[in-house]
């Protein structure tokens, strides 16, 4: 094994371990997005939707779908990845990872890969559930998948950072609850930011989620709040920031090594 080659066996071992954890909790993992998606459609799509105008040429129910999927994807990516690395730290089994010939890159590929796999699967389940309620159209399937994967990876990286930073379960919940959920709700998941007054529109542009939801929605209906190129660029920027933080974590051993 030279310096350049990856410890593939280790990546596979961690990935499979994490996916086994997912399988053990499969039912609750699937039930919750299916249930919450259905509820959103019952409340927003069926009860409120008929009283709403079409937005950018699509029904309100259909308009909701990309935002809902993004909401689930962000929440799931963060919670899966943060839990995946926090738990071994909490129970102490992290000793094995730290003593193994595994590089930071391999660690991140395995943990983030597993978390992103799970959240992407759940996003697809949400998409499937939504298709039962509204007529869906996907103009740019390739970009739809690209945004899905990019977002899953980026927010799994964020989750990984949170899982290392957190030193108790409360903190593990704190960031998703206090930052991610508000950003998602205020990020145009349920409305077009064109509907906001100019001042709030500008404020909104500092919200990273806006770019994700906008780009993702464009891949469905060909309409976006901000240019797609900017959405894509911003997503990459967030990803790079996460990668920089993670590389700092491993370089300094922050909260990993004594």
């Amino acid at each position: 094994m030279n310096a350049l080659s990856l410890n593939i066996h280790a990546i596979r071992a961690i990935y499979r371990f994490e996916m086994a954890r997912t399988r053990r909790t499969l039912l609750q993992s699937i039930v919750s997005p299916v249930l919450s998606t259905s509820l959103y459609f019952v409340v927003f799509g069926s009860a409120i939707g008929p009283h709403m105008n079409e937005i950018a040429g699509v029904s309100y129910g259909a308009f909701l779908v990309p935002g809902l999927i993004m909401l689930g994807l962000l929440t799931q990516s963060i919670s899966n990845a943060s839990f995946g690395i926090y738990f071994p730290r909490f129970v102490g089994t992290i000793y094995e990872l730290l003593s193994a010939p595994v590089s930071p890159l391999e660690t991140v590929i395995a943990y983030v890969g597993a978390a992103a796999t799970k959240s992407t699967l759940l996003a697809l389940i949400t998409l499937g559930t939504a298709a039962l309620f509204v007529d869906l159209r996907i103009d740019h399937p390739f970009w739809m998948v690209a945004f899905l994967l990019l977002t899953a990876v980026t927010f799994s990286l964020t989750g990984f950072i949170i899982g290392i930073w957190a030193d108790n379960f409360e903190k593990l919940q704190l960031v998703p609850l206090l930052i991610v959920t508000p950003l998602t709700f205020l990020g145009g998941s349920f409305y077009s930011i064109d509907m906001l007054p100019p001042f709030w529109r500008t404020v909104t542009l500092f919200n990273p989620v806006v770019y994700l939801v906008s780009g993702f929605r464009w891949s469905f209906y060909g309409h976006s709040d901000v240019p797609v190129g900017i959405s894509l660029g911003m997503t990459f920027v967030f990803m790079l920031i996460c990668l920089a933080v993670i590389s700092w974590i491993f370089r300094t051993g922050y909260r990993l090594k004594r």
């Binding site: 094994m1 066996h9 071992a13 086994a20 129970v91 000793y95 003593s99």
Partner: peptide
């Protein structure tokens, strides 16, 4: 390394957790 503290996974089987360690250390199954 066999650590001083008894820190193990809970839900894994004995065989799986041992195989996991082997993979982690870069050895084929």
């Amino acid at each position: 390394l066999v650590p001083q503290e008894l820190t193990t996974d809970a839900f894994e089987t004995v065989f799986d957790t041992t195989s996991f360690s082997r993979g982690l250390f870069g050895k084929p199954p």
